[in-house]
Simulated scan of single mutants.
Amino acid sequence: MKTAKRASHLSGEGAFEVLARVQALETQGRDIVSFAIGEPDFGTENHVTEAAVTALRGGATHYTPTAGTVPFRQAVSRFLRRERAVDVDASRIVVTPGVKPVLFCAILSCVDEGDEVIVPSPGFPAYESLVRYSGATPRPLPLREERDFVVDPDELESLVTPRTSMIILNSPHNPTGSVLPRPTLERIGEIAARHDLWVVSDEVYASMVYEGAFTSALSVPSLADRTVVVDGFSKTFAMTGWRLGFGVMPEPLVPVFTTLLTNSVSCTAAFTQEAGIAALDGPQEGVKAMTDSYRRRRDLLVAGLNALPGLSCRLPKGAFYVFANVTEACRSLGLASAGELQRRLLDEAGVAVLARNCFGVPFEGEEGHFVRFCYATSEARIVEGLARMRAFFSQTS
């Protein structure tokens, strides 16, 4: 049977492919230290789960308004005011079953076939995949190691053409852990205003900033009225399986998003929205404790990686990823790519990582080999993973 051509533009995610390989090896009895999948190893807090159970027992099993219940949208508004110092009316907030529908709706609402969209490179693979699916062309925006993987506004503007309609940002950033400082966001806002561009700001890791303060695109005046903020509960509240996200957008986009969601998912489950309210309005000590734990793990992993032969990495300022330069390690092992190193570390050392090719098409002139380590795992497993890699490199050198 014939399938639609547009389906060929969608790509998978390397993280889930490696996860499947890890699980296959584990069923064979192998012990794998996984730095691959970007999922908190913490459980959802009890008061959040109890709120969902109470809602279910109270009959929260029916349709909800497509854009979300009023109490949920108001809770998001309160959270943004309290945690990010931005004042957003609840009418500008739309709930979704997970974060990716916000990305999907933003691109389908604001990008036409034949347009160009500037996407971070390396970057979360769904950006490039969804842009291609929409009929537009992704333009890679280089994130360079010598700039700590922070956007160069001048380089960004050099990529703008008459066909450019959108810029996608991600801060804190996956896979590099970089964080956009406010002056850089202000420069990007000037560029977006000058060229009349939409901006999508993926802020799903906003709670995980280790040095300095997080700046939301919504707090930059030149960005506030042209930006769709993408956020959710998976990382901040360790709720990956709950599939709960939200978008914040200019008022005129709300009915467009709502219509797209009506035609795709209808609505987000009532009881998960009740759980979301409990997470947003409830105690935040668990979020802080989780972030403090990630900071300790980051420091442990970065120090360990920089002590390994042929590896070096910058200290990430946010998220829970380290983007390590493995160029010298690949050269000493006679490997042509980080992908080959990824495979050998998994098969021979029992350590799972993700190579650079899992994060979009390389930008023009890109040099070096990189792999991503996710440190959302215990300190004991980080120590074990480092020991296995040390043994691997000593045996193969």
Rank of each mutant, 00 (worst) to 15 (best):
E203P: 02
S378N: 09
P252W: 02
L346N: 10
L345N: 08
L103H: 12
G114P: 13
T258H: 02
A55E: 13
L315P: 08
V70G: 00
P172E: 05
M239F: 01
V160T: 03
E157R: 04
V361F: 03
F363T: 11
V150G: 09
E328S: 13
V86C: 13
E155F: 02
T64R: 07
E379A: 15
R343H: 09
M208P: 00
R343P: 01
A7C: 06
V88R: 03
L300V: 04
S266M: 13
S312V: 09
Q28W: 00
G282W: 03
L261N: 06
C330D: 13
E50L: 12
H369T: 00
F393G: 00
A51G: 11
S129R: 08
T215K: 01
L180G: 10
E348S: 13
R187E: 13
L280Y: 03
F393H: 00
F124P: 00
R147Q: 11
T69D: 01
T262F: 00
R57Q: 15
P316S: 13
D89E: 11
G232N: 05
V117K: 02
A338V: 10
G247S: 05
A4M: 12
L218V: 07
A336N: 12
F393R: 00
R144D: 03
L156C: 08
V199L: 04
R81W: 02
S171T: 14
Y127C: 11
A278S: 14
F271D: 14
P125C: 12
V22T: 11
N263T: 11
I188Y: 05
R344G: 08
I167A: 08
N263G: 15
A192C: 10
V150C: 08
V95C: 15
D148K: 07
V70Q: 04
M166C: 10
V53H: 06
P309E: 06
P250C: 06
A67F: 00
R344D: 12
V76W: 06
R147H: 14
L218I: 08
G232S: 04
A279M: 09
G232C: 06
E211V: 10
A355F: 00
D87V: 00
Y210L: 13
L308A: 04
G339F: 04
W242E: 05
D115M: 07
W198R: 02
C267F: 14
S332E: 14
V326P: 10
A338M: 09
D196P: 02
F124D: 08
G334I: 14
L253K: 09
L223V: 02
G276V: 06
A52L: 08
E285M: 01
E83S: 03
P138K: 07
D196L: 03
V151M: 03
L223C: 00
R144A: 05
A24E: 13
I93D: 01
A51S: 13
